[in-house]
Amino acid sequence: MTAETIALANDYIAVEIAALGAELRRLRDKAGRDFLWSGDPQYWNGRAPLLFPMVGRAAGDHIKIGGKSFPLPQHGFARRSQFETVSGLGHARRAAAGGQRGDPRRLSLSLPARHRP
């Protein structure tokens, strides 16, 4: 884990999530096996980008909500947003980006400590 990542683990898996874009960077089981693409920059340095609120491009890179036009880059804003841990206890974390609390552009992610079947 580096200053640019958030690390979470439970009895079964460990993950590293990039603060920039909340991209899943590593998914490893307790035996140490990796389950994600390595991010070889010769081909593509991404791994699992968070494309939110849409995949693709809006016409003219803008969307209309309630009669108002808003800029929206290709694949949304999340992958270019800096996320920060806003709360955490043990291995559970909540991260957010995109504006201040109450801002409709704010995106919040909850990362539970363990899988619940």
Score class of each variant (00 low, 15 high):
E4M: 03
T5C: 06
I6T: 03
L8M: 05
A9F: 05
A9Q: 11
A9E: 14
N10R: 00
D11Q: 15
Y12P: 10
Y12A: 14
I13E: 09
I13Y: 11
A14F: 03
V15G: 14
V15F: 10
V15P: 07
V15N: 07
E16R: 14
I17N: 06
I17P: 09
I17D: 04
A18G: 13
A19N: 08
L20E: 15
L20T: 06
L20H: 08
L20V: 07
G21R: 00
G21C: 09
G21F: 00
G21N: 13
A22W: 05
A22S: 06
A22F: 12
L24D: 01
L24K: 02
L24T: 01
R25M: 15
R26E: 13
L27K: 10
R28T: 11
R28C: 03
D29W: 04
A31E: 08
A31F: 06
G32C: 14
R33M: 12
D34L: 13
F35N: 15
L36E: 10
P41R: 02
Y43M: 12
W44T: 07
W44F: 12
N45R: 04
N45E: 11
G46N: 05
G46C: 13
R47W: 02
R47C: 00
A48P: 01
P49Y: 10
P49K: 04
P49E: 03
L51K: 12
F52R: 06
P53V: 06
M54H: 02
M54I: 09
V55M: 11
G56I: 09
G56A: 07
A58S: 08
A59F: 11
H62P: 01
H62R: 06
H62G: 04
H62C: 07
I63Y: 03
I63N: 12
K64R: 09
K64V: 15
I65H: 01
I65M: 14
G66F: 08
G67Y: 02
K68Q: 11
S69P: 07
S69T: 08
F70V: 13
F70Q: 13
P73C: 00
P73F: 00
P73Q: 01
Q74T: 09
Q74H: 05
H75R: 15
H75S: 12
F77Q: 00
A78T: 03
A78S: 10
A78H: 01
R79K: 10
S81H: 04
Q82M: 12
F83R: 10
T85N: 09
T85C: 10
V86A: 03
S87N: 05
S87R: 14
S87H: 13
G88E: 08
G88H: 05
L89G: 03
L89E: 11
H91M: 04
H91S: 13
A92R: 05
R93W: 02
A95K: 07
A95L: 08
A96P: 11
G99I: 13
G99E: 07
G99F: 05
Q100A: 14
